[in-house]
Design a protein around this nucleic acid. Structure first.
Lengths: 343, 343
DNA sequence: GTAAAGTTTGCAATCGGTTGCGTAAAAGTA
DNA sequence: TACTTTTACGCAACCGATTGCAAACTTTAC
C-alpha cells in the first residue's frame, strides 16, 4: 500500500517549471493564462492525479461551497425529501451539503449552529427544533453575511429568508373540506406549543373555518399531542371516540396521527368515511398505503428544499445587506382520497 | 448590520499579550500551559466571541473531523435511518457528517467520491449506486489511508470494511417461514442485476430454502423488477396472479414491493394470508400501516449506521495498514405479522 | 548561592491554494 | 527602429490554526 502523498499545485508547478499562481489560474481557466498553458497544466494535473484541497481554498477565500442544513431529523419523510431537494439544487451549482440533526433539542441546535459556523459554511438552511424558543444562536450567520434560510418551522421575529407554506390557509382548507363533506363535529389533533408557526397556524385555520361556517368551537374536540407519534395519535383518538358526542370528522395536523386515528377507528368498528371523515397533513407515503387511503394536504418538501437552496445560492455572492428578507410561500393542496370522500 | 470580522486566535493573543501558540494550546487544555493562563484565555475567547476556524485546523493537520456519506438517496426509510445512526454516533465524538446522494447513478457517484476526497473527509461510508459496476473511484481513499466502510450494498472484491446483513440467510429465513406456513408455490419478487450483493444473495437464499425443503424452483415464479417501486411491484404481482398456477406465497425483496403485492391481491379479491401469504423485507414504516400488516425481515438500519461510524472512528487515528479489513454482519429477524400468519 | 530539573511561553515554519501587483515577453503601432 | 499595448506569467503575502524546538522563568536540590 503506497503512502500516497497528496499531489499539490506545487508538484505540478515544479514539474512544468511554472509558478503555483499560474497553475492555480490555469486550472480555473483564468483569462490571463494562455490556452496552451491551460491545456498543458490540466493534462499534467490529470496525469499526476491532482485533487484540489478544498480546505486550503476555503481558508484563503473564506468560503467553502458548502451549505449547512440544520434540521430536527432526517428520518421524517418530509424532511428527507426537503434534504433531497436541497442537495440536488446545491449539487448543480457545485455546492455540497452538510447535514446536522438537532433531534428537536435546543441545546443540540445551539451546539450545531456553532459547529456549522466553525466550518465556515457558505449558507445555512434550518428548520427549528421543537424545543427552540430563542433563536439568537442563528444571529452569528446574519452578522457575518452568511445567507440564512428558515424553512417550514420558522421563527416569527427573525429577519431572514423564510420558505414556508401558508399553514393557516392549509388548515382552513382541510377543515373546510370536511365541512363540505357534511361534517359538523370536527375534531382537531394538533401538537407542539404555541411558539412554532406550524401547528398553531393550522389550528387557527381550523378555527377560522369553523367560525366562517357557523360551526361552534368545541374545546373537547381539540386535542394537543405531546409528540407527533403513532402512539400519541392513538391515545388522542381514543379519547375522542370515548366522548359522549364523538366527532364525525377529524383534521389531524400530520399523516402519522391521521393514520393512527384511522386504525384506532377501524378497531372500534367506526366506518370511515361514513361515520368519521379524516384528513391528514403532509402527504407522506403512508397516506397512500393506509386503507382507506388518507385524504391529506400536500406539503411540497422537495420544492421547498429547492427554493431554499436557490435563495442561498443567489445570496452567497451578493453583498447587499440590511434589506428586508423575503418570505417565500409555496402552495398546498387538498388531496381528497377515500378517508374523507362522502359525496 | 455590523461587518463582523472573524475573531481569530491572533486577536486573542494580541489582547492578552501572548503568543498564538499559547492561545491555541490553552484552548485545548494542553498540559504545558498553566491553569491560570488557560482560564484567562478561555474567558477572553468567550468574551470576544471567538469561533475556531475548522478549515485552518483541517488544513494544517490534514484532518477534518468530518465523515463523508455517499449513498443512493436519503429518502428511503432504510437509508435515512442509516444516516441517523451514523450522525448520532459521529456527533458524540465531535465529528460532522457530510451527505451526498448518488441517485443510483455511477457518474454521480464517481464525481461525488472525488468531491469528498477533495474536502479531505476523515472517513467515508458508502452504499453503492445501483448502476455501479466498477469501484475504482473508491481506491483513492484506501490509498491515502482514509477509512472506508461499505454498508449494505457493497462490492465483493474490494478489501475494505463492510457492514452488512447476511442476505442469503435472510432470504432463506423468509422463504422458510412461508414454507412453514404451508406454502408450496412460493414466488419471489426481486430486482437489480447480479452485481449487487443484496438481491442476488436473497434470491440464493430463497432458492436454497426451496431446495432444502424439496420444493421445485419454478422460473415463472421468479420475477425481476426493473426498479424497486410501487408501480413495478403491481405489474409484477399481476403477472403472477395471471399465471395458470398462481403462487400461494410471495417473498418480496422489499416492503414497497410487498405492499404493492398486497394491494394488488386485495383488488382481485385474493385473501391474505389464507390464499396468499406475503413477506417483505426491510421493516419499513409502511409495513405496519398496510392492512393486513406485512410480515417482513428486519433490517437494522440505525445499528448499521452506528457500526459503520464506529469503524470509521476507530480507524481514523490508527496507522495500521495492509490488514485484512473485517466484515461486520448484523443480525436480521423474521417479523411475523398478519400477511403471512396462517397457523 | 549555584547548578540542575521542571514549568511555561514564544518563535517560526507549515498546511495548499489564491490573488494583487509587478514584470517580462509578444504583438501592434508609428 | 523605437515605443506603446497587450498578453502571459511570477513573486510573495495571505488565510488561521498547529507544533517542534528553543528560550525564559521558576522551583528544587545540594
Amino acid at each position: 500500500m503506497e503512502e500516497n502523498k497528496d499531489i499539490t499545485i506545487y508538484d505540478i508547478a515544479e514539474k512544468l517549471n511554472l509558478a503555483t499562481s499560474t497553475i492555480s489560474r490555469a486550472l480555473k481557466d483564468h483569462p490571463s493564462i494562455s490556452d496552451k498553458t491551460i491545456k498543458k497544466v490540466k493534462k499534467t494535473a490529470e496525469e499526476m492525479g491532482y485533487v484540489p484541497n478544498t480546505l486550503a481554498a476555503g481558508l484563503r477565500g473564506n468560503k467553502t461551497n458548502t451549505i449547512g442544513v440544520l434540521i430536527p431529523t432526517v428520518t421524517q419523510p418530509f424532511l428527507s425529501s426537503l434534504i433531497s431537494g436541497i442537495e440536488i439544487t446545491a449539487q448543480k451549482s457545485g455546492y455540497n451539503v452538510i447535514i446536522m440533526q438537532s433531534h428537536d433539542s435546543y441545546d443540540e441546535e445551539v451546539s450545531m449552529a456553532k459547529s456549522l459556523y466553525s466550518s465556515r459554511v457558505s449558507g445555512v438552511i434550518s428548520s427549528l427544533a421543537m424545543e427552540t424558543r430563542d433563536t439568537s444562536h442563528f444571529q452569528q450567520f446574519v452578522s457575518n453575511n452568511i445567507p440564512l434560510v428558515f424553512v417550514d418551522r420558522v421563527p416569527k421575529d427573525f429577519n431572514t429568508f423564510r420558505v414556508i407554506i401558508d399553514n393557516h390557509a392549509a388548515g382552513y382548507k382541510a377543515t373546510k373540506h370536511l365541512i363540505e363533506q357534511g361534517c359538523t363535529r370536527i375534531a382537531h389533533l394538533t401538537a407542539g406549543s404555541e411558539f412554532g408557526n406550524l401547528y398553531s397556524e393550522r389550528k387557527r385555520g381550523y378555527i377560522d373555518a369553523l367560525k366562517d361556517h357557523n360551526l361552534p368551537i368545541i374545546e373537547e374536540l381539540i386535542v394537543n399531542l405531546k409528540t407527533v407519534t403513532y402512539e400519541e395519535g392513538a391515545k388522542a383518538s381514543n379519547k375522542l371516540f370515548d366522548l359522549d358526542l364523538p366527532p364525525d370528522g377529524i383534521f389531524a395536523s400530520g399523516d402519522i396521527i391521521a393514520v393512527s386515528a384511522i386504525q384506532s377507528a377501524k378497531k372500534r368498528g367506526i366506518k370511515i368515511p361514513e361515520e368519521l371523515a379524516i384528513i391528514g397533513f403532509n402527504n407522506d407515503p403512508i397516506s397512500q398505503i393506509i386503507d382507506p387511503n388518507l385524504s391529506t394536504i400536500t406539503h411540497p418538501a422537495a420544492k421547498m428544499g429547492k427554493a431554499s437552496a436557490e435563495i442561498i445560492l443567489k445570496n452567497i455572492k451578493s453583498n447587499k445587506k440590511d434589506e428586508v428578507k423575503e418570505i417565500t410561500f409555496l402552495n398546498t393542496e387538498v388531496l381528497v382520497r377515500e378517508s374523507s370522500k362522502r359525496i
